[in-house]
Nucleic acid binder design. Sequence first.
DNA 1: CAACACGCCTAA
DNA 2: TGAGTTAGGCGTGTTG
Length: 931
Amino acid sequence: MIFQILDANYVYDPDGFPIVQLFGTTPSGRPVTVQASGFRPYFYARIDERRIDSAIDGIREMGLSAEAVDRFRPVGYQRRPSKMLKVVAKDPKSVRDFRESVLSVPGVLEVYETDVLFKNRFLIDLDLGGMRWAEVEAGNGGSDLETAPAGSATIGPVPYTSLRPAGAGPAVAGGAEREKVPGAEARGGAKAIPNAPLRTLAFDIECLPLHGAMPSPETSPVIMVSLAFDPPYKGREDLVLVGRDLDCPRGDVLCCGGERAMLARFVEILKDYDPDVLAGYNSAEFDFPYLEERARRLNVEVRVGRDGGPWRVRKIVNQTRVEITGRIVVDLLPLVRSSFSLKRYTLRNASLELLGVEKHDVDPKEMEALWTSSGDDFARLVSYSRRDSYLALHLLTDLQLLDKYIALAQTSGSLLQDVIDGGQTGMVENFLFRKFQERGRVIPPKPDADLSSARAAQSSELKGGEVLEPKKGLVEDVLILDYRSLYPSIMMAHNLCYSTVVTDERPPSGGVVKPPSGGEFVLPGEAPGIVPGVLSDLLAQRTDIKRRMKSASEEERSILDAQQYALKILLNSFYGYSGYARARLYSLPLANAVTSFGRTNILNTKRMVEEIGSVYVRDGKALLPEEMASASGDSFPAVGEFKRFDLSVVYGDTDSVFIRLKPFGGSGVKPTLEEAELVGGKIAETVTSRLPPPMELVFEAFARRGLFLVKKRYALWVFEKVGGEWRDKIKVRGMETVRRDWCELTSKTLNRSLELVLMEGRVEEAVDLAKSVIDRLQRLDLRKDPEILEDLVLTRRYTKSTASYKNKQPHVQLAEKMRARGGPVPSVGDRVPFVIVRGRGLFVDRAEDPSYALENGLLIDTDYYINKQILPPLLRLLAPFGVSKEQLVCCPEQQRLFDLAPPGAAVAKGRAPSGPPAEGQEQKQKSLFDF
DNA sequence: CAACACGCCTAA
DNA sequence: TGAGTTAGGCGTGTTG
């Protein structure tokens, strides 16, 4: 029988030995639990070779078994393995304690792999992994499972040796000996098995706020639970559970009489529907903790796990984690946060931006009245509640948010829940555990707090990428080239790895690579690195998947796309991991070697391009100067038979170069798109041929015009070939249009101006646009023009508790104001929207809640918006064309005076003259004389 | 007024 | 946020 692994844990047999439970799904989507016995927890101890016997005796006296093995230490090139003991325990929970006692045994030098969760140890050692397929030889009940009556089935306990990997997803990692034949077919011809269908339940709760305040689980009941199902549950796509008695006219509204009965019903439906995935929006921070507390108070059992256990809500520092054995718990809020750059992450805004669906809303103050009402009013409350679980479900399914996490789980071997909740570290480590094991290398435990902070202090010595100074201003005809997976390809090209870095042993031949950062790495002939090998596997798989995507159906393509994305993420994670202070495998020499090669490479690339100097295009072919010369012999072709473009690098960042093509001579003709592509391809090919494989420079796009402001800030009118056709668009990097701490009015105005300047070359129209926007602001009257408020909203992330801020920040000041008013307060991690209102004092003190400002008739500080939001970005764009501030702010005399006055001047007029003017004002006053 | 620290967000 | 990395611009407010 085969099944796809969803989750894992362990229980104990009557003798106190662990039994691993794998929770999975059969190909048809039926849940199954497989129990495996006989697998034991273990770890490694490196020992002084002269004291092996006494050390073994000492360890055996603790009731552990110990066996001498040869293993390589984690970091550093070693010619021979070290003597180690594999120490086997009975109870996984005892390993932590035995680690200390074993360390105190004379002769024991160091311990390894002492903190590997037992479920992970099991999966790693059996070459199984999250969302991968496994096969179990099940004597009874296994083969006829698919035809057995409904409900889940349990198999076993079977000996753990009767479990093995089944099939091979294209992204499932292969072993070391398959490097010769890259791609999916390489895995012993194993066929990829499509993912089993997942049953998904999304839910949302409504609580009764007291007089419009935030509900608290100590006092406010849960009044509704809405549920959305995919696939439908008993023919229904959604249900709303109601915690009061009412004649419920509709079948999809279940009136439960009271809160307790409603919660019990929720638990019943959960068990009955038996979802693989349980989702909500902000459910980890709100719904689950709330339900947990209400259930505790009302004495409702929440045993919804596939092992019969309860859900577990664990508060971690600033975060809550929810676990249900055998199921995947998904809080969509952090997923949406990490996948999309939005100004706000409320369910309302996320649904609008990502699904294009409006959310129904009920004013918290109205809730109580609606709750006790009936008829249409009550129906409104029900439909509001229903909508929220619907939106959560559709964010998950329509955006296929889970697909890439599934692919990441399959590729890395981590359980899906760990991929969703954790970061790159867990995946990289899970992956490395497997690869190091194949090569007989052990992995250290996680560094303790002291070691981590020592490393963190040290890691300021890690230098990053090189950014070239841009040639500022407008440039025409720019080629964009970049290196494909630069850091991974550097690691492969130079055999950079934990296992190749020279620490204390040197290779017999003495052959080493010396990176610009110093240090030495042995050549692949001596010892091919583990990480370079892994990267090479992953790269080959990605190339293969991208090839297969071209001929795949729509449905297949989205799965393949998730897989190639997962491979890309993983490929790029190894470098970051090596420089991460809390990594098990931290190596500053390794991380520094990678970036130092990167820096010299981009500088080299610039030099190479400029040494090439120019490229010719003749008869539909691009030629280097020497090719042109040799092709034409003594008689250089006549002008008109070829085009020549002179090359200069105008910008570059880490792995990219921007090359200007200057048509040769006064009568030089601009390149066509096709010619630009030819030239770009020629340069890429030429540079690549001079670099060690698999380093590869590729032609990415061509820009007819570009505007480079400063490092990391530029805009281009790019042309890209999509399926044989040229598509053009404006590509903006780093400028205010892509920054969320600027208002929409700025983004819109700047965006349109960029289009006018870059696509149409119409600077005057951009000037007119800016003038009209400024004029509109000067005449601003919120009562007549309330829609503009939305465009004036700035947002900033409230990153830490107020007390930890050393300086005042507008959004933090606002959060405090809101707290004092007793309304809803932004919490740490939220993006806080605000507008700047007119008044006395510092900018940071004049941030206001947009709706509060509107309701209370506060005046917008138009001077701030003109002088700080519109003018600076627009002038940065237009100044290179000789546009000055005065040209943008030209208006009736009266308003001009007003404009040039400092922010708050209107108030200053009415202020007591005795007060000393603020510093900023004094400066502005002085600058008035300049005009 | 220049130099600086802080905070935020983005590029890669 | 129980954590992939560094480079870099810019606004705000303070300091010398």
